[in-house]
Computed example of a mutant assay.
Amino acid sequence: MLDFLLWVLQNFALAPYHLFLAITNPAAWLDWSNPEAVMRFIYYGASVEFFFVVFTTVIVITALGMAWKREILWTGVRILEGFANVVGRTAAWAGLLMVLIQVMIVFLQRIFRVAEIQLGPLGTAVAMDLSWWAEGLKFYNALVVCLCVSYTFVQGGHVRVDLVYSAVKHRTRRVIDMFGCIFFMLPVVVITYLYAWFFMWRHLMTPSVTSTSDLDRMLMQSRIFRWNVETIGFSPNGFNAYFLFKVLIVLFCVLVFLQAVAFFWRSYLEWVEGEESAGKYLDRDQIGDEAEEIEHAIHSGST
């Protein structure tokens, strides 16, 4: 137990040094014309060093906000929630695109018996089979699910079962929210990210890398490094960009992590400042129907 605590404290102490080293040596991990830089990027993207840099940064900002000025945390909440809203509101248009493509497929396939769709932007013709467009609908659905998750959380749109939460007072709710962020949201999303990171890279390049590979071994593997982006579909003429789904899993984890941090800060601030601060700076969409908005607020726990 003592060894573990010393290991944690050591990594906390080294986090500023690792961050300084990464900032002052960008070519060592951002120059992707060099295979060794790619391998360093992959290794450090899910490394202990990166985890403690992020964790230390969050703790320092949280400590400053708690001990000095709460406006620091409110600024962080507004930035992170605003980012989630921008990403979500943009990605939500994929739902409309998905519907339009589905209607187009039905008309072209069932009525006009067209086998493929040809597009020619800027004089370059691209022809794709209808099955490619049909299977691509899964990608647009994945866009909505992965990139709108934090946006939906900010809007209070996720389904929740309030057996205890709805019956307790404001400050107790905020304690439950902080507990949930620390012991549920953050651990689950970090573990998911660690698996998703290497899962993504195994479908983008060779040789295969794993979470158990150390840096020296990966640098040795860089000698045979080459890009090998997954372009195999489930059918011969079907959607062949399934590597994008792996990228979306990583983006999903990043968005949920940022939202967990923002929600912890908001819960703490609303716990300290009292019920009058509930929903402060919260940017939620307006439905247009007052009765529906009240019902939505009740079900989302904001009233």
Rank of each mutant, 00 (worst) to 15 (best):
I191D: 15
V254Y: 06
L122Y: 15
E273C: 04
S213P: 06
I72Q: 03
I42W: 02
A196K: 07
V229W: 04
V145D: 05
A134W: 09
V250F: 07
C181A: 11
A134K: 08
G279K: 04
C253N: 06
F139N: 06
H170L: 01
A127W: 10
Y44H: 09
A63M: 14
L137R: 05
S222N: 02
P121L: 11
F153N: 10
L97C: 08
R173H: 05
L204Y: 10
L194Y: 14
L119Y: 09
V159Y: 15
A67H: 12
R217L: 14
R171F: 04
I249H: 12
L122E: 11
T172E: 12
W271V: 04
D162Q: 11
F234W: 13
I176G: 00
F139S: 05
L143D: 01
E135L: 08
L137G: 04
P236G: 03
L6Q: 11
F243G: 03
L143M: 14
A27F: 07
S222G: 00
I42V: 11
I61H: 01
F112V: 10
R266S: 01
S150I: 00
W93T: 10
E295K: 13
T231M: 15
V144F: 01
L6R: 11
Q118S: 15
V250L: 10
M200W: 04
F139D: 07
Y17D: 12
M200H: 05
M1T: 10
L251P: 04
L244F: 08
V209R: 00
M66N: 12
G76A: 02
L130S: 08
C181F: 01
V144Y: 00
T24I: 14
S222H: 01
V145R: 06
M104Y: 09
G156Y: 01
H299F: 08
M178E: 04
I111R: 10
N85Q: 13
C146S: 14
V58E: 03
V247K: 08
W265D: 03
V53A: 03
V229N: 03
I176Y: 00
M104S: 09
F198R: 09
L258S: 00
R202W: 07
G180M: 02
R223P: 07
R223M: 10
F107R: 12
R202M: 08
F51A: 06
R78Y: 12
I101C: 06
A91Q: 00
G233T: 07
G76T: 01
T192L: 15
N34L: 05
S211H: 10
L108G: 09
V149H: 05
V261F: 03
Q118R: 15
M218P: 01
G45W: 02
V99L: 15
R266V: 00
A28Y: 09
A22P: 05
G238D: 07
A260Y: 02
F252E: 11
Q259S: 08
D214R: 01
S213K: 08
M1W: 14
Q109P: 06
V188I: 15
K169Y: 12
F264D: 03
L251G: 04
L9P: 02
P207K: 06
S166H: 05
S277C: 12
H18D: 13
G123K: 12
A92N: 09
G123S: 09
E290A: 13
N25V: 07
D129Q: 10
A260D: 01
G180P: 00
D289R: 10
I111V: 15
L194V: 13
